[in-house]
Amino acid sequence: MAAPPISNDIRTLRFLAGEMTQAELGERIGVTRQTIAAIESGKYSPSLEAAFRIAQVFGKPLEEVFRWEG
């Protein structure tokens, strides 16, 4: 399956947030660690709600976390 044309900086943002783990981020937005891992690796495009929640956790606007590459 082709990767979705959406890239993200979640890995970097987690590092900048004090090495927040995938499990911690997942818990804060209500998804599993595997889903965070799938989002980070570009295998899964999150719902708009999950994307906003992720951006909210890092205190960033959506476009600084996710980028449209299409």
Binding site: V31, T32, Q34, T35, P46, S47
Partner: peptide, 10 residues
């Protein structure tokens, strides 16, 4: 620890 957990991707 993962049993029963389900989210939007699942």
């Amino acid at each position: 620890q993962e049993a029963g957990a389900s989210d939007e991707r699942d």
